[in-house]
């Protein structure tokens, strides 16, 4: 379990990083390394060059605006976890980040790195999807904003090919009269989720449900967002049938089974987590609507 030999570059500008990536087709970007290094050690990946972007200035900031939260490529999970400003604009960020692995991994691992890794069992991929977020990608041709739906293509696969650095991820702010919740079930605390759910519930001015949306972890090949509004639309927030929304979700997902959970069990968890998180999110939405 020792990596094969690889080259190493530590550019100080995005442009230099792109130059190295352009010059070497087998090069890979290294940020926090929490997913990449184990793959190297197990020789499941053998990049010819690691392009370490940790010396590139300007990528380590969390920028909060009225529109949302922009998270730079070098922001560690732990920074987002403790950012009160980010949480105020989009509470899902802190709530989801708390479920990312263990403290040691959160200290080094980056939020954008886990998004670029495109693991459908990752928390932040789902949050990006649920909030209808996007990423900014730098390529030799310039910078582009790519919406989550176009970015995630498959497990560990994005639509970005060739030399590219994901500079940041943008999570839109929580809309008015809305609440969120995030929950996951893992075999051990800090493990990849057997199933996880993040939800956003939005009420109308009369405190009736106008929207209920959910994103799931570990149930599909890419992050999935499901609109569950039909099960609860127009219902007063105090009497909405969240279990019905859970049942709706159970029918919408098509998970696989693996060592830790059968497909059926995952569907059960989708229903249960959906009901629980929607109820929590609705209560928050109600408080914000008062």
């Amino acid at each position: 379990m020792k990596p094969a030999s690889f080259g190493y570059a530590d550019p100080t500008t995005v442009e230099d990083a792109l130059d190295v990536l352009a010059a070497d087709e087998g090069a890979k970007v290294l940020a926090g390394g929490q997913s990449l290094l184990p793959l190297l050690s197990m020789r499941l990946a053998a990049p010819t060059t690691l392009v370490d972007i940790n010396r590139v200035p300007g990528l380590d900031g969390i920028t909060v605006s009225r529109d949302g939260v922009r998270v730079g490529a070098l922001v560690r999970h732990v920074q987002l976890l403790h950012s009160a400003e980010a949480a105020a604009a989009q509470p899902l960020l802190g709530r989801a980040t708390a479920n990312v692995a263990h403290p040691a991994i959160r200290n080094r691992g980056t939020t954008v790195g886990s998004i670029a890794h495109a693991d459908p069992s990752g928390e932040m991929t789902s949050v990006l999807a649920l909030t209808d977020g996007s990423v900014t990608v730098a390529t030799p041709g310039g910078r582009a904003t790519i919406g989550w739906g176009d970015f995630f293509v498959g497990p560990l696969e994005t639509s970005v090919h060739g030399p590219a650095v994901v500079l940041d991820a943008f999570f839109p702010a929580l809309p008015e009269r809305s609440g969120t919740a995030f929950a996951e079930i893992s075999r051990r605390k800090g493990d990849y989720a057997v199933c996880g759910a993040g939800v956003v519930v939005t009420l109308d001015a009369d405190r009736r449900v106008s929207s209920a949306r959910a994103a799931y972890l570990s149930v599909g090949l890419v992050p999935e967002v499901h609109d569950l509004t039909d099960a609860v639309a127009g219902k007063p927030v105090d009497s909405a049938d969240w279990a019905a929304a859970g049942e709706l979700a159970r029918g919408l997902v098509d998970p696989d089974g693996d060592l830790h959970a059968s497909a059926d069990y995952r569907r059960l968890l989708v229903a249960t987590l959906t009901e629980r998180t929607l109820a929590t999110a609705a209560a928050e939405a109600a408080r914000r609507t008062a």
Binding site: R187, H260, S262, Y265, L268
Partner: peptide
């Protein structure tokens, strides 16, 4: 026994 087995 794991939760998924207990569910079964």
């Amino acid at each position: 026994i794991s939760p998924t087995e207990l569910y079964d």
